[in-house]
């Protein structure tokens, strides 16, 4: 039963990821990416990393994808921009795909089998909080600064200049 659920989610994740790459319309790609993230969340939950699964849904499938859709809506990319370049892109991309596919496969085969339930321990809220507010306290704070800079930057680029208001 577990195996069936795993393959279901895994197949869903792979298929929707491929759809993201090959679909013509950006909106369909974004919607497909939501399903992909949800499937990965399912895999997390199956590995008993329930907190990570919930975060995956809330942050990625939820907040970030809403932003993606907003950007797509605002930019309104026309279909023809994406058509016609595909064959050339495929030719350039395929050696890279083969290379990284090989490397990842090797990594997967070489990796030691993780102990059962280890993710359940490391994925618990207590452990995540411990890592976030102790070991990774400084990166956590710096991320705050990073987001502040991004907000400030967005404001600067859209603000009217003093010289213009005269």
């Amino acid at each position: 039963m577990e195996l069936v659920v795993f393959y279901l989610f895994a197949a869903l994740a792979v298929v929707t990821a491929l759809v993201v790459v090959f679909v013509q319309r950006a909106v369909y790609g974004a919607l497909s990416l939501i399903v992909c993230f949800a499937a990965i969340a399912g895999l997390f939950v199956q590995m008993e990393a329930k907190f990570l699964g919930a975060i995956q849904i809330i942050v990625y499938a939820g907040a970030i994808m809403v932003l993606f859709l907003f950007v797509i809506m605002l930019l309104d990319p026309q279909k023809e921009i994406f058509v016609g370049r595909k064959p050339a892109l495929l030719i350039y991309a395929s050696p890279l795909v083969i290379f990284f596919g090989y490397v990842l496969l090797r990594a997967l085969l070489d990796a030691p089998q993780p102990a059962q339930g280890s993710l359940a321990e490391r994925g618990a809220i207590r452990e995540v909080a411990h890592a976030l507010f102790q070991d990774y306290l400084l990166p956590f704070e710096l991320t705050g600064i990073l987001i502040l800079v991004a907000v400030l930057g967005a404001m600067v680029l859209t603000k009217r200049r003093p010289a213009e208001t005269e």
Partner: peptide, 26 residues
């Protein structure tokens, strides 16, 4: 002393610099 810190420092630098490069927005 950690790749995470290096990355975050680089990103803080980069995002601020993208905006600075476009500061003469006219």
């Amino acid at each position: 002393a950690d790749l995470v810190m290096t990355f975050l420092g680089l990103e803080t630098l980069s995002i601020a610099t993208y905006v600075l490069a476009g500061f003469r927005s006219k």
